[in-house]
Design a protein around this nucleic acid. Structure first.
Length: 359
DNA sequence: AAATATGTCAACCGCACGTGT
DNA sequence: AACACGTGCGGTTGACATATT
């Protein structure tokens, strides 16, 4: 069933708002408050769609909005949160007082995405392009022109795409991709800047005053939402790079190694993990079957619970079908597994329901 | 000075979800 | 259960401003 348009498009004004329209809108809200937006145009004497009125209010006229440029602190926060939860602009905006989701989204698209790209970091996965292509090469498939590499956003649209003019090699020459990108596309200086940036942005920082709890919780949200989405998403979750801020030993190199790995890449680690999962950590797994926590991660502080969960969900999701199968096998269905995992997350982070999803 | 390219950001669109009937 | 409606969200567009050629 095709939904009818929310308003008669022939009789509504579109485009930029005039000062007069803004004044009418403000007067209406001052008198009647917000809500029932479909009735607002008529009541306020505006030839606008109700949706347009709401948008104008929420994105521009609201008195609590900041209209100045983003601060470095806000910029950093956006990058961190984007790394944690992706393009959930409304959630990110909630952590930045006076900013709207539209502000944050525009700022990301106009500035931050480009900034990261220029540093050789994929703005969607927050991983170096060279790493993404190296991983992609490891998969073993040939890359066709126009195929996606990295940039695994929910919508799968905002992607880093190979174009013939950008990478004018033939498919037969694909074996040269990695070396080409690692030696030519990312010069030493860029790598240095990249590592410095990543250390500052994603690793522990004594001067960092952002809420670790919040970021951990957002990680947990992403775990839940990603796990609750399609099975395909299991293979496309971006790496959680902002995570381990409390760990003093965490570095970018660790991140690269701890990142989603392919079965066979680390046979020893797989064995160790398998042993751990099968024995004493069973308790943890049953508490949250989607979050399998090996000993190496459990040694961290409790505040990393969500983070660890994310890491390991990634491992199980992206690397080992066996792990997924074993965790799922404790439940009668995939859906039950997801539901149990979700319940556990919200038990662990009860304030998520009150704070993060407060609208 | 004019043409073109690029950047910014307000606004629009379609879809999903929650709620009421 | 099915539908209508209101609302919110994320992706995209397009107008305008600014920079570059």
């Amino acid at each position: 069933m095709v939904r009818p348009p929310c308003c008669d498009k022939l009789n509504v004004k579109r485009g930029l708002w005039t000062a007069e329209e803004d004044a009418k809108m403000l007067a209406h809200v001052a008198k009647h408050g917000t809500g029932n937006w479909t009735a607002v145009p008529k009541k306020a004497g505006l030839q606008r769609c109700g949706k347009s009125c709401r948008l104008r209010w929420t994105n521009y006229l609201r008195p609590d909005l900041k209209h100045d440029s983003f601060t470095p602190q806000e910029e950093e926060m956006i990058i961190r949160l984007h790394a944690a939860i992706g393009s959930r602009w409304s959630i990110i905006a909630q952590q930045l007082p006076g900013r709207t989701d539209n502000d944050v989204k525009n700022y990301w698209n106009a500035r931050l995405r480009k900034k990261l790209s220029e540093m050789g970091i994929d703005p969607v996965t927050h991983k170096p392009f060279s790493k993404i292509l190296a991983d992609y090469g490891n998969i073993g498939g040939l890359v066709k022109y126009g195929s996606r590499i990295g940039s695994l956003s929910r919508g799968l649209k905002n992607v880093f795409t190979l174009k013939p003019e950008q990478y004018p090699f033939t498919p037969e020459g694909m074996s040269n991709i990695n070396s080409h990108l690692m030696t030519t596309t990312v010069p030493p200086k860029m790598e240095s800047n990249q590592e410095c940036f990543l250390n500052i942005m994603y690793n522990n920082d004594a001067n960092n005053n952002h809420s670790l709890d919040l970021l951990d919780q957002l990680q947990a949200i992403r775990l839940v939402t990603e796990a609750s989405s399609t099975c395909t998403a299991y293979q496309t979750i971006p790496a959680p790079c902002i995570l381990d801020e409390s760990s003093t030993s965490f570095s970018w190199c660790d991140f690269l190694l701890e990142d989603e790995y392919l079965p066979g890449d680390h046979p020893q680690a797989e064995q160790e993990n398998a042993a751990e999962f099968s024995s004493k950590d069973l308790t943890n797994q049953t508490q949250n079957p989607n979050v399998m926590i090996p000993q190496s991660f459990q040694s961290n502080t409790e505040v990393n619970a969500g983070v660890n969960g994310m890491d390991l969900a990634l491992q199980s999701n992206t690397g080992s079908d066996d792990q997924v199968a074993s965790s799922s096998s404790q439940h009668s269905s995939f859906v039950e597994t997801i539901m149990d995992g979700e319940s556990k997350i919200f038990l662990d982070f009860p304030n998520l329901l009150e704070e993060i999803f407060y609208y």
